[in-house]
């Protein structure tokens, strides 16, 4: 499926309680302060709800950057 990166960033800003600009299309988990392990699960749950997909359990720990998330959604 084609993926709107900006929509994903918007979702992450909301879930992680970020200010705009704190996350970019290239950001990784260790660069964003609020993107901790619980925050990561919340992002994944929100992505599932927003895109109507199920992220397999073992995939969740791999989606630790915006490009990884985009790539996963594009290949689903």
């Amino acid at each position: 499926m084609s993926v709107d990166v900006n929509a994903i960033l918007e979702l992450m800003v909301a879930e992680l309680d970020l200010d705009e600009g704190e996350i970019e299309p290239t950001s990784t988990m260790d660069e964003v302060e609020n993107w901790d392990s619980l925050g990561h699960l919340r992002v994944c749950m929100a992505l599932e709800a927003a895109h109507g997909v199920k992220i397999p359990m073992e995939k969740v720990p791999e989606l630790v950057s915006v490009p990884a998330i985009v790539a996963f959604l594009e290949n689903t």
Partner: peptide, 16 residues
């Protein structure tokens, strides 16, 4: 409920 997130991080409830 949402079983996978229970195992990943003790989150029992789904978004809904």
């Amino acid at each position: 409920v949402n079983d996978s997130y229970w195992y990943l991080g003790r989150i029992r409830w789904s978004t809904v």
